[in-house]
Amino acid sequence: MVTKLALKDLSHKPDLFAPGHRLCPGCGAGTIVRQVLLAIDEPVVVANATGCLEVSTSIFPYTSWRVPWIHSAFENAASTISGVEAAYQSLKRQGKVTEDIKFIAFGGDGGTYDIGLQALSGAMERGHKILYICYDNGAYMNTGIQRSSATPRGAETTTSPAGKVIPGKMQYPKDLTAIMAAHNIPYVAQASPHNWRDLMRKVRKGVEKGPAFLNVISSCNRGWRHPPELSIELSRLAVETCFWPLYEVEDGVWRLTYKPKEKLPITVWLEPQGRFRHLFRPENRHLIDEIQAEVDRRWERLLKLCGEA
């Protein structure tokens, strides 16, 4: 029987992500992984791209993974899990494996938006029954906060410092979720750990319908520069400001899974984060206006795609 997505029911399930890992306090990734593994009732095999999640949970001879888990390299989580899934299909056909097993890959935004994009695109196009989950913290946090193509415009990172001439990262983030939707795979969605029930529902759909892609915003207090206890709150604000809308594209149909009653101004999300502090100086205020305009433009476009406008 499928476990109800209620705290009471979920609390009886074993935690497949063991404590004692070395992720930072307040890191979004660990919370996301626990929600993902709690959501699935079937046995799961996980592939992990190189990154914070991988290095913090698998320091030999310890492991936080109470499910079969493989890390191979940075850019190949999608192709690695596609090999695992192909082995499963082959061995199942031969009667050598009998269980119904689900396959998940985790990658950060660096491993997904950038270096792993080709492998991800290939795996999705080939139609493997897998769910790829990107925990998007908007920079290469594991190597020390370098900008990625997921880094928001204006953010200061160690390779896009806020200097006298260039005030942080100048490009808007790549819309990877839309790129994955353009693969016309059965299921693509965006989620946030603050809305755990929405996230877990999407995980369930993803593993059932695969190939599927789930993009999850994941706060990094070291990189975003905010107190660790604000981690989940900032995920919520990313959604309430429509910087990170919660939606899904199921069999080609776009649908908002949550619509803020009142769209909050982007400054509400920017201000608590040290990486945007320089934007609030008078000479950079115009950047905030531009960022707001881009958030609005993308939100309006999404509303249209979802038949809400």
């Binding site: 690695t80 596609s82 056909r93 080939r126």
Partner: peptide
């Protein structure tokens, strides 16, 4: 043949898929 044939998008992914499949217990 009984083979699951993966027509990958690069050689890097070819070997990566081989790694995943071999770790999953397949002859690859």
């Amino acid at each position: 043949v009984k083979t699951e044939f993966i027509t990958v998008e690069s050689e890097h992914s070819a070997m990566s898929a081989c790694i995943g499949a071999a770790a999953a217990g397949a002859r690859v």
